[in-house]
Amino acid sequence: MLLIPCPYCGPRPELEFTYAGEANISRPAEPESLSDEQWAAYLYQRTNPRGMHAERWRHVHGCGRYFNASRDTLSDQFQFSWKPGESPP
């Protein structure tokens, strides 16, 4: 079970969280202006890296907040986490 560094509450066990996918995929401001390809890329294409991954978690059984974290997908070790709207440290 991962120990996940919630930037609001501190490290907590994985059971308190839900995973929320890759970070930094913002919803386009004007979806109507996008081509089908661009829209599909937003909806479906993911980096899925073998290594450092910027991702989102929600501390659902805690503060309830979504936040960002950087984790190595080879070791599952977290590097750091940061609040939405902030820059990674």
């Binding site: 929320a20 913002s26 919803r27 929600r58 309830g64 907040r65 979504y66 939405p84 709207g85």
Partner: peptide, 13 residues
């Protein structure tokens, strides 16, 4: 609720 929170917190803060 999770979806609402997601949009509210991260897309439209």
């Amino acid at each position: 609720l999770a979806m609402m929170e997601d949009y509210l917190q991260t897309e439209w803060p």
